[in-house]
Each structure stands twice: as structure tokens, then as C-alpha cells.
């Protein structure tokens, strides 16, 4: 592992550098993935650009009824500990608290987790559930991309060679909503998800009518993804016996997991169903508990 180290002091400076170096400079946010890849020789870089000095990207900001903006460099532990996040997107806080363990959560960043584009990214399912918007910046300007369009494949995103992820915006969902993220690993910590499933349930008025359901999954396909057909099973449905099971069954059909050192495809499919059922039950319970309209 040998490279030139770039340490821009501001986002503007970073974008100028990225314009010059393009793919030649790999972005270092937390380092928990990048440095491991570089040490293993799985990735080579002429230059590494550390964003550590860009304190301007380290923020969690409530934008009132619109939603929450999170700087790309906020660490997992800061996301997990944030009162704003805990109140408004508890499932995201839960997901970040399940990344590795304390040391990794202190180093790793929300932006890094997304840009690394691992199919197993823990932060992806909760953000997919909330239709998060990502601000990608370059010296040419900024653009906003929906998280659904961000991932292209394992370790591949829509980021152009001169772009840097600047901010993650989480729009505020309307109504009574409950969401959760469940991660399956062999151990209780230091795990890369065998399967991760997030479910969000929206209720309108009645505790028994689901106005909307969202299901997001990780480690089950080349990218984290939404299970749209599984979601449709719930939409505008009254809760009845077998509904959750049916949705889980359909969601599993939307996955295309592989067999690898962590688990076989068959077990992953089984576990999507299990986690989906459990997450749906928990999300439903949370939604029913959510009496207030909107976020406080």
C-alpha cells in the first residue's frame, strides 16, 4: 500500500483536487473499508484523498417538516447517538449501531457506507425506506440523486470520477409510521450482514389499515434494494392472518442472493422471509404506537 495523500481543507478544495485526479484519487472517509482493500492489494490508488478535515460535512441538521440533512462524514456512532435521528429515523440509528463494533462505528461514516456500495451496507435499507436523496458535488456543481438510483452494483455507484457525496437528505414521511431494520449475522457484533431487512409501515387512522409499506433489503442482491412487489402486498390492506407471511414470501422472490462464505443462497432466501416477517410485525407495532401526526 503506497500512495500520495491528499488532505483538502475544504469541500471546494476537495472538489478541485477530485477534478484533477478523477479515478486516480480514492476518497478516504472513515477508512474502515478503503484501507482494508488497499492493504489487501484488492484496490490500488495513485492517491488517497482524506476528507477528515472537511468538518463542513460533519453535521446532522433538522430541516423541520421537510426532513433531516446528514453530512456525508457523520460517523455511525454519531448517527446512532443523535437525538434527531433517534426520534425521526430510529431504524437508521439502529442500523448504524449494528455496524461492526464501537471502533468501526467511530471511524466509519454514513457517506462512506453508501459510497462503498457494498451489497451488505447496513445504512442502505433504512435510507431506501425513506427515499433519501443524495447530494453529489463536483467542481461543475451539485446534483441530487435518489438513493434508489445511486447503487449500480457491488462497489459501483453513479458517482462520476470528479464527484464527492456531500449530503444525505432524509425527507419526512407523512402520517403514522413505524420502521425497523433487522440484521442477521452469526455473531451479535462484528458482522457483515448475511441478510438485512428493513420494513416501514404507514397507517392511516385505523390501526388495521396499512396505507403504505416499504421493504428494503441488503446482502440479497448486487445492490441493496427495495422489494416493491412485497410492499404492494400490504398497500391499502387491512391486516389479516397470512398477510405478513405473503408479503415476506413475495419479497424473497424479488431477491437474488448468492452463496458465499457467509451463507448459502437457500439460507439467505429463508432468512429474508423470517426477517421480513419479524421486521413487519415490529414496524406495525411501532406504527401503532406512533400516535402523533408527523415528527416531533
Amino acid at each position: 500500500m503506497r500512495f500520495e495523500l491528499l488532505q483538502p481543507g475544504s469541500l471546494a478544495q476537495a472538489l478541485e483536487m477530485k477534478k484533477d485526479y478523477r479515478e486516480g484519487a480514492k476518497i478516504l472517509a472513515g477508512g474502515t473499508d478503503l484501507l482494508v482493500l488497499l492493504k489487501d492489494g484488492k484496490l490500488r490508488a495513485q492517491a488517497v484523498m482524506s476528507l477528515g478535515r472537511l468538518s463542513e460535512l460533519n453535521f446532522i441538521r433538522s430541516e423541520g417538516e421537510r426532513g433531516v440533512a446528514i453530512g456525508a462524514l457523520v460517523s455511525h456512532s454519531d448517527v446512532a447517538a443523535s437525538r434527531i435521528i433517534q426520534q425521526r429515523c430510529p431504524d437508521l440509528a439502529e442500523a448504524c449501531a449494528q455496524v461492526g463494533a464501537a471502533q468501526i462505528q467511530n471511524l466509519g461514516t454514513l457517506g462512506g457506507n453508501l459510497c462503498n456500495a457494498s451489497p451488505a451496507a447496513d445504512a442502505a435499507p433504512p435510507l431506501l425506506l425513506m427515499d433519501a436523496l443524495l447530494t453529489l458535488a463536483s467542481a461543475r456543481g451539485e446534483r441530487r440523486v435518489a438513493i434508489h438510483d445511486f447503487f449500480l452494483g457491488p462497489r459501483r455507484t453513479v458517482l462520476e470520477p470528479d464527484e464527492i457525496l456531500k449530503e444525505i437528505f432524509v425527507p419526512q414521511p407523512a402520517g403514522r409510521r413505524g420502521a425497523t431494520y433487522l440484521k442477521l449475522g452469526r455473531r451479535k457484533a462484528m458482522e457483515i450482514a448475511i441478510v438485512g431487512v428493513g420494513v416501514a409501515i404507514h397507517l392511516n387512522g385505523s390501526d388495521r389499515i396499512v396505507s403504505e409499506c416499504r421493504i428494503a433489503m441488503s446482502s440479497v442482491a448486487p445492490t441493496p434494494l427495495r422489494a416493491r412487489r412485497g410492499e404492494a402486498v400490504f398497500t391499502n390492506q387491512e391486516i389479516r392472518d397470512g398477510l405478513i407471511e405473503e408479503a415476506a414470501e413475495v419479497a424473497a422472490e424479488e431477491a437474488s442472493p448468492i452463496s458465499d462464505v457467509r451463507a448459502t443462497r437457500g439460507y439467505r432466501l429463508d432468512m429474508i422471509r423470517v426477517l421480513c416477517r419479524r421486521a413487519a410485525r415490529e414496524a406495525l407495532a411501532r406504527a401503532r404506537n406512533h400516535k402523533a401526526e408527523g415528527w416531533r
Partner: peptide, 23 residues
């Protein structure tokens, strides 16, 4: 040397991190 074992844990501004994953 990969952030998996924690034997290199140091505190950076008071927070534990894997020193092997910090330049």
C-alpha cells in the same frame, strides 16, 4: 491489521478506534 480484532485500539479525541485503520 484489518479492524477485526481490536488489539490496536487507541483513543482518538477520546473515542476508541482501530489504529490500523487510521492513516
Amino acid at each position: 491489521d484489518a479492524g477485526d480484532c481490536g488489539a490496536c485500539t487507541v483513543l482518538l479525541d477520546g473515542k476508541p478506534v482501530n489504529a490500523c485503520l487510521v492513516l
